[in-house]
Design a protein around this nucleic acid. Sequence first.
DNA 1: ATGAAAGCGCTAACAC
DNA 2: GTGTTAGCGCTTTCAT
Lengths: 332, 332
Amino acid sequence: MSRPTIFDVARGAGVAISTVSRAFSNPQRVAEETRERILRVAEELGYVPNPHARALTSRRTETIAMVVSDITNPHFFEIIRGAEMRAKASRFTLVLVNAEESARIEMEQIARLARSVDGFLLAASRLPDEDLLQLAGTHSVVMVNRQVQGIPSVILDQKEGCRQLVVHLASLGHSSVVYLSGPRNSWIAASRWQAIRDSAAACGMSALRMGPYTPTVSHGGAAADAALTTGATALIAHNDLLAIGVLRRLAARSVRVPEDVSVAGFDNIFAADLCSPSLTTLSGVHADLGRSAVELLLDGVAPGPRTGEAPRLVLPSQLVLRSSTGPAPVAV
Amino acid sequence: MSRPTIFDVARGAGVAISTVSRAFSNPQRVAEETRERILRVAEELGYVPNPHARALTSRRTETIAMVVSDITNPHFFEIIRGAEMRAKASRFTLVLVNAEESARIEMEQIARLARSVDGFLLAASRLPDEDLLQLAGTHSVVMVNRQVQGIPSVILDQKEGCRQLVVHLASLGHSSVVYLSGPRNSWIAASRWQAIRDSAAACGMSALRMGPYTPTVSHGGAAADAALTTGATALIAHNDLLAIGVLRRLAARSVRVPEDVSVAGFDNIFAADLCSPSLTTLSGVHADLGRSAVELLLDGVAPGPRTGEAPRLVLPSQLVLRSSTGPAPVAV
DNA sequence: ATGAAAGCGCTAACAC
DNA sequence: GTGTTAGCGCTTTCAT
């Protein structure tokens, strides 16, 4: 009743188990004829190598884990898809785990999988640098949308993207902008704020940061209320979800968008095009993020000498203009 | 440099390896004092049991796989979250894999994971009944939103939900309804159509099915065009994504919703509340679906005699009325 | 090119 | 309550 093992295949093919093993994991080291016979017998028997037994000795699992800070955030969709496709192309399994926006949970999940995967893709990690460096010391790690010195990473170009966004707002006549910040331990939030502040300064705009806010629709209400107290006419929310929450609250308070206030977000999630007004947002080819991340990881996982520097990919971002940004209101 | 094993812990604690093993997997079979000493040594050494070695002998992995037909469909969000939380509560890891709306890929993913997980959660599976039955013969399987004789399942109550939806449309004066069907091999699509047809008959409405359509926004255009040719005033799309695509196309063709045509969807995804007009949809507590599914699976995974009948949970669905459905236009 | 044999780290009888 | 021991199914030297 139990499944066939390498032993059964060996018997059926009249060879030693080591030969069967090679036929599967090192095909070129087995004579063509022998290999074919083995594969045929295996096929007939319905033999499939046991991944645990394999991992136990080889220490490789052909599996990579992708840890996302919040699996319900649509932003990760395309990243996940891109990563998955690339992983599959190399016959790796991608398993997805959720960190629920919590550093503790993220760490737990990682610890749990540490022995069962070949490497980690950490998307928008909430962990402190030290933890990441330590992890990277013992495992293959690639960061997505976060940079840490010494760890391979792929990010969208925040700096240039934020600059375009700010210039866009400046050219519409806005003189002050508020950044509604994401979570406190979000690297990308810090990086966005810095880029916005610098670009605003370069444009002669004043910039203010508020928050941190949990980047969900429901937290947009508080963010909107806070932002209105500043008198700023341009709001940049940490992501589209938060921006949509802001739009809702503004509508509820009869603040017109974009006539009274302009609003922009990040990620270009599906809903950004559906809400009203539709949302101006900073996007990028997220599937490429995922794809590139897996590629870096596979490079790191492969045997052979590690390249000297940890690669840092910066992929272009792009501004998507919609209806939520418009000319600044004329001063009364 | 290599990680500590059960051996190192045993030496450090002055006990046999089997005692260490018990301290971790069967704590109550070890004297309190011994156990504490072992755990302390393990902690000091940074010992973590190797899951592969463990799985190799015990044949249990404490991992369950959730296969979803399309991971980018927001419908699955809450289901995934519910499943994840329940799994974590029992210290199981939930790994997520994507079937990309393809039966072939679904089968591949399953085969790939068959040895590395304790069971499968199949959400909106596209596989034929026979394949599912065969799989269920060798593995623990729970279906989500699909029923197959002999396999445990959890679904939302389509029948009652569709009835409510049709009655709602009938009470608005609509006399004909079109169901824009989901994928050909979607069990839920078949089940919805049957419920819609029966309920429509009971209300004296005519019902028509069109499609199948891939349930994405982009396919809603064709669906809308097709539906308009029928002269029906009420459209029920297979899901919210398709419905949103329909809304877009109708807007583009200057067909007013709900004045000229009423539109409804399924799933109550986040965007259903954002699109304009906002979408009437049939919902349910999706997190409960995921939670219950994991519960059934854990029951099945647990050692001990299997219960006689495969349980079939039917969770209540609920109609969410929004602006996309309204009174039927008065005949010219 | 192939075989023999020694583990990988752990669990699960079985003994005491 | 704890120790001994035989594997789980495979990879990987090392021979031949």
